[in-house]
Design a protein around this nucleic acid. Structure first.
Lengths: 245, 245
DNA sequence: CGCACGCTGCGAACGTCGTACGCTACCATG
DNA sequence: CATGGTAGCGTACGACGTTCGCAGCGTGCG
């Protein structure tokens, strides 16, 4: 149906809402991708859906990002920037490391989808945020008394633990979120299977039984700090040994 | 070109290579999937390619496996069975834990693709191999003197560390493998970028410089055992404190 | 002995994905 | 005004996971 020949001046009075500034940009894409991932998880991130959120075509994104893998690298480095690493201070290095561990953990829990792309992002080695944070963490351990080479190993230890521990938490949360609205039902549905299987394994059964009374989230948090404490203990005895030598 | 009308008795002498036994089975599918994954990595695993390897149609697999996610769960639990956990023995618990850690690490390095599915396998909670191995590990820590509840936390700590640490190793290896035949070229290609970026970060730079002289694989292995040692130190001081109390 | 049923495998098809390619409209520069 | 570079987009291709209905085969019942 052709429109009538009347001019529509209210629209044509402003003939250029067109190219005020390049409406798409790498930053806008990355930050919108993070919003989408936080809201709907990893499966919901496709170039088309992301483009739609930016009211753009899917393929327009390729002007700013080489491909989806690169986008994910950018996204991962971006959220890595959210981690808060305190300034180095020999007097309270143990507290500072603990704070860092918690900050890293809560970052991952804020963005649980990262754990499903960890293996694919071989690099991000060069991400600016990752480098900046690593530098700060190394400073932490240097202040504690470790030599530079050893500080590197200690940092690897801490990050490996926190990532590994939080991965299992985040994976759990992801499955809960993906399994739909009511987690409770789903958990209950596979409880009989689990309980039957546990019969054969007394230690496993007793451990789970002890946990039964508490809040799952609480348990995970306690287990997390327990591990951090043990690691810090190990580091302190190491420091004691080397300085006594 | 139609074949000549000659009978080919050597073939038709055995007119029933047809349904000897159900040529497809869950076990065959899982083990072939592992072979495919080991050989060509995670991206090469599709229902079609896996079906082809079993000289079957892609959709035939769905008779034995609900969907690809379930297949991956099965595969992950299967390789978890390769881990060797020594029998519990109070006299040498530290050695036993170390052996377990190494066995877990080498399992992941044998199957580097697991790290790219870790986040997606929320469950496998119920996999029989995972349960069996967990039980054995708990026994290890119980023998060391930990109460059952605490043994659970200790196990989580160790597994988290090993998985986290090995994830970064495996991701590195995966990228190398995926980037094609000559790792060296690819590494060299991004070295200038890396070195320029490192200028801003003295600690990071010094650490990498110290590593420059050694073999990368060697470094990772040393870093791994360093972490295990620190964790074991931490566990021992914990045991000392609780038994002294 | 015959026949109906259940199970295994498969071909075709659907919807979705990442992304290569070439076109248009705009802007900045000569 | 001509020119070239750049941002955005429509179309299209090949691969993917998965659904569905059909075809063979073996088994057990009448």
């Amino acid at each position: 149906m052709p429109a009538e020949k009347q001019p529509i001046p209210s629209v044509w009075a402003r003939p250029r809402p067109k190219r005020e500034q390049p409406s798409l940009s790498r930053d806008r894409i990355v930050s919108e991708a993070i919003k989408l991932l936080d809201a709907e998880g990893i499966d919901a991130l496709s170039m088309r859906s992301l483009g739609a959120r930016l009211s753009a075509g899917a393929t327009s994104l390729y002007r700013h990002v080489a491909n989806k893998d690169e986008l994910i690298e950018l996204v991962v480095d971006e959220i890595y920037g959210e981690v808060r690493v305190p300034a180095a201070d020999p007097a309270r290095w143990r507290a500072a490391v603990t704070e860092t561990a918690h900050s890293l953990r809560s970052m991952v829990l804020r963005h649980p989808w990262v754990v499903s792309v960890l293996g694919q992002v071989g690099l991000a080695y060069l991400g600016p945020n990752l480098m900046r944070q690593s530098e700060r963490m190394l400073a932490l351990f240097k202040a504690a008394g470790f030599a530079v080479d050893e500080a590197d190993q200690v940092m690897n230890l801490l990050i490996a633990y926190v990532i590994g521990m939080t991965t299992s938490e985040a994976a759990y949360l992801s499955v809960l979120a993906r399994s739909g609205q009511n987690e409770q039902d789903w958990l209950e549905s596979l409880r009989p299977t689990a309980e039957q299987a546990l019969q054969e394994y007394p230690l496993l059964r007793d451990g789970r039984a002890a946990e039964q009374t508490k809040d799952p989230g609480q348990i995970r948090a306690e287990s997390f700090v327990y591990g951090v404490e043990r690691i810090l203990d190990g580091l302190e005895t190491r420091l004691g040994r080397t300085s006594a030598r």
